[in-house]
Structures are given as C-alpha cells and as structure tokens.
C-alpha cells in the first residue's frame, strides 16, 4: 500500500510545487509553462507520432545496449576471475577508458561508423561496460570465507564453487553495477543523439530547445524520466529474481 502511495504522493507534491512556481510568477510563464500546457504539448507530439518515434529510437538503443553491455561485462568479469593475467590487462584498459566521457568519442565514431546502430553500439559498449565488469571481479574476489569453507566441506570443485556459492553471493554487488551501467547506457545514447543530431529524444530535445518550444522540452524531459524509470524498474525485477534473499536479509536486519 505505502509502496504505491509514496510515488503518487511525490508526484502530487512535484505537480503542486510546479504549479506554485507558475502562480507565484517568479519565472516568466514563457520559460516555465503551467502543467496543462506541458501536457498539451506532449499530447500534440504524440498525435503527430513524433514522441513515440523518438521514444522508440532512444529506448531500443538504450535497452538493447544495456542488455548486451551487462552480459558482456559480467562475462568478462567471470573470465578475468578465472585468468589473473587477463584480469591485469582488463583492469589496465578499464582504468584508461573509464574516465573518457561518451560525448568525447562521438564525433570520431561518426567518421568511422556512420550514423546508424553501429555508432550507438560502439559508444554504449565503450563507456558502460566497466561498472558490471568491475563489480563482478571485486564481488567474486570478496566471497565470505565461511561460505567457501562450507563449499569445500560439500566437496565442490572450482566450477561448482563458482556456480553454487561465489556467484550467488556476489549477485547483490554485481546487480548494483548493472543498475549503474543501465543508467549510463541511457545517458550515453541521449548524449550521442544530441551531438549527432539525426533522431531520438536527445536530438528532439535540442531541436525544440533551440526553437524555444519550452512546453515541448519539458514534455520530452518527462518522457525521458519515464523511460529511465521503466529501465530502473526492469533492473529491480531482475534484482528480486537473483538477489531477493539479500533484500529479505537486509529487511530483517534493519
């Protein structure tokens, strides 16, 4: 009950705050339109099919990218745990590439890969692969020694140990990395769209902003927020599936 009540309450509060700012007229209405105007702008963009198209473009890139990148990252993490020399190499590459922002590689990637899906795949993989990789490596290395002793007593070999003990124990931390990677996948896609300027929500946001269509800009921001929430909810569902025990344990401890 409260789980449903709180977001509704927060949304209501946000709407009230918004409307209060509009009525107080601290910002010119041109720059901060009432909610009704924003909803209207969003509706007309939906009626023209613009909104769905942009959401589909951005959403498909971000969601497919996030799924692929998380699977590759966790896979690399598992491989690196098995082969320490691979881990040293990947750690070096991660340290070098991690500070590079997605925006910085976009212009060059456009030269090399064009404006199609390859561009987005490259940018998303390059910048988002590291959180799941690093989380997997560090979580697998930090299994509770007591659990490892239990495994040895059960006569587990290295593979059984990994599958039945180390991986499940590492899941909460790995999924924290997955959650982080999923948010940056969306960011990377939107930034790329802003810079390449062809399609998607990022492009539309800039187009409307430069045309000073403020209600449309706010409506698009709301749509981006919804897309982000949907992706976050999907990660939460995965979390409950794989690491629900962790939530239950925490709930009892608190």
């Amino acid at each position: 009950m409260t789980a449903l009540l709180r977001p509704v309450l927060a949304l209501g509060l946000l709407a009230a705050l918004w409307q209060a700012v509009v009525w107080a007229a601290v910002v010119p209405e041109r720059y901060f339109p009432p909610i009704a105007t924003v909803v209207q702008a969003g509706m007309s963009m939906i009626a023209r099919g613009q909104m769905q198209q942009a959401l589909f473009d951005t959403g498909s890139r971000a969601i497919l990218g996030a799924i692929a990148v998380n699977l590759i990252g966790i896979g690399l993490g598992l491989a690196a745990t098995g082969a320490p020399s691979l881990r040293r190499i990947l750690d070096t590459v991660a340290a070098i590439l991690q500070p590079v922002p997605p925006a910085a590689v976009v212009p060059m990637a456009v030269f090399a890969l064009g404006l199609g899906w390859k561009l987005y795949a490259f940018v998303v993989v390059l910048v988002t692969i590291w959180p799941p990789y690093l989380a997997t490596v560090s979580a697998l290395a930090a299994t509770n020694p007591v659990l490892l002793s239990v495994g040895r007593m059960a006569g587990f070999g290295p593979v059984a140990m990994l599958w039945h003990i180390r991986l499940p124990a590492a899941m909460p931390e790995i999924l924290a990395g997955v959650r982080y990677a999923t948010t940056i996948a969306l960011i990377a896609v939107i930034v790329s769209e802003m810079i390449t300027g062809r399609d998607g929500i990022g492009f539309l946001l800039f187009q409307k902003a430069f045309a000073i269509r403020i209600p449309e800009v706010f409506a698009l921001m709301f749509a981006v927020g919804l897309l982000g929430s949907a992706m976050g909810l999907a990660v939460s569902a995965v979390y409950r599936g794989f690491a629900g025990w962790h939530l239950a344990q925490r709930g009892r401890a608190a």
Partner: peptide, 13 residues
C-alpha cells in the same frame, strides 16, 4: 524520480 532523468537531458532547460 529525478535520478532517472539523465543530466544531459537537463541541458536544454
């Protein structure tokens, strides 16, 4: 809710 809004999306506003 705000956390789901990527920082670059706030640039236009």
């Amino acid at each position: 809710m705000l956390a789901t809004l990527p920082p670059p999306a706030t640039v236009p506003v």
